[in-house]
Design a protein around this nucleic acid. Structure first.
Lengths: 279, 279
DNA sequence: GAAATGACTTTCATTCATGAAAGTCAGTTT
DNA sequence: AAACTGACTTTCATGAATGAAAGTCATTTC
């Protein structure tokens, strides 16, 4: 019924007046001219249609209904404080949303040292949902092929090779993800080539790795991930059908955002310096 | 360092723009003219000294730093919603702060039926601290003598009589509060008249009652409280030295506050209708 | 009992924000 | 290629909020 919303700034002043107990006190503490306070509080009462203050020679005191409103608005104090801290803090790290596959995400998470990122902070989004960079659902994506949209900036990184890994050469069978839509290319390849050798499945890729480490079967992994796993040995030549380039993708305009730009640079450096998987 | 605080209303608009993804969308949803939105967001950026939005043909998108600010201000959405509910809700119960002695508080808490108080809700303040009604630390007080200040409205209620109670006539000794400042008159009388018969003490008056019910000793209680306790029997005549009138006190201006006025009326009715203690 | 104090309200000129309409610009449609 | 569309910015006259100073009113002090 009521469409006229209240000014949160006025509500914040109401809290200040309530704390101070008088317009004079609140005006001094907040640096707001006293007449302005008087008018804002009166307007609040007019708009709400209720008496919020008792005006007396001692000052302004909240009525019972005023206290009810103050209780609803009490959080504003905390928000003011937090925003002021944000404003004063000299450019704390800004969150940059990154979407990448499981292994690339892990690699990045290990390679980016937190101490040396004053400008940005990586924020890894869940990699299962295919996020739309054109719709700004993420700032930076790492994909296995260049994007369709012309709005997206792209940059080729290292070439990724895949191979079969296992805890030892004696291990037979494979650990795979359960079949379903949205399966990665390496998993589709595994089901096509060795579908009858799948010993067990886990929907979480990290869990597949754990199973392989425990000897439940072999896994197909990007070489940069598999080679880095001390408990695993490479058990095959690189799989030619799966080799692909890795692409760093972002919205074209996002490159004007300093934290995103810094993140792009750092990620590009990180994922190029790494020894490329064999072709 | 930064003294210029931000307008919470502008921050709320920032959240709306972030949600909508464009000024146009936010302007329609919130009923704010689009030029105003443009200016407010620009001002926010100027005041914070940071780029908060990426402006593109698709609309406004938050930068990484803009998202950091939005995270700090996210609660504002909830506050807006709660305040709007408060404004729309047809006068929900307003809290009325009441300060009274232990037994009167309990009597009131039992006598006031919660279902029939659409206008106000009793809020009992801790009765140990002597709250100053003149300084508006409470809305309504129930005292054993008329107030000093002429600023306070007063109204005489029933007369309160005191007597000695115990679980049976055979019980000897007394249960009292430990000595100290701020002791009630009945406790002072007990220490003066039967100080050498005090068997045990408890700083909480309710605990004294529990001890008396368990047979640890006798207690001095207002008759309206002692008579209502089924496990207790009156073991003495009313104590003439302790009888006093009960006074309903409030700030003079508080009577212009409808919830407080309603509470005063209800309390006065409740504490007059009750059978008065003997004189 | 008159003056001073404290707390708020009112007045009024000024400043600032508003909002309707016109302007810009990039991408899309015909 | 020209016109259109969508999204924002700019312009400018208007209206609203501001703030300094004067005005009220009840209490406190001398």
């Amino acid at each position: 019924m009521n469409e006229s919303h209240f000014s949160l700034d006025d509500l914040l002043l109401l809290l200040d007046v309530a704390d101070a107990g008088s317009l004079t006190g609140a005006a001094q503490r907040r640096g707001v001219p006293l007449p302005t306070l008087s008018r804002r509080m009166t307007r609040l009462e007019r708009d709400s249609g209720r008496v919020l203050f008792l005006r007396g020679k001692a000052g302004y005191a909240l009525t019972a209904e005023g206290r009810a409103l103050a209780a609803e608005a009490a959080e504003l104090r905390a928000v003011r404080r937090r925003v002021a801290l944000w404003a004063d803090a000299g450019h704390g790290p800004a969150p940059v949303r990154i979407t990448a596959g499981t292994w690339t995400s892990r690699h990045l998470a290990r390679a980016l040292s937190p101490g040396r990122n004053p400008l940005w902070l990586p924020l890894f989004l869940p990699s299962n949902a295919p996020l739309d960079l054109a719709r700004r659902e993420a700032d930076i994506g790492i994909r296995n092929r260049p994007p369709d949209s012309s709005r997206l900036a792209r940059r080729r990184l290292r070439r990724i090779g895949y191979a079969v890994y296992g805890s030892s050469a004696e291990v037979t069978g494979y650990v795979a993800q359960p079949d379903g839509p949205g399966l990665a290319a390496s998993q589709r390849w595994l089901r096509a080539e060795h579908g009858d050798e799948i010993a067990t499945t886990a929907s979480d890729l990290r869990l597949c790795l754990d199973l392989a480490l425990a000897g439940f079967g072999r896994v197909v992994l990007p070489c940069f991930a598999g080679d880095a796993e001390t408990g695993l040995r490479r058990l095959s030549d690189p799989i030619a059908a799966l080799a692909h380039d890795e692409w760093l993708v972002s919205h074209h305009e996002a490159r004007h955002d300093p934290p995103v730009r810094a993140a792009l640079d750092t990620i590009a450096r990180t994922l190029s310096a790494a020894p490329p998987g064999d072709d």
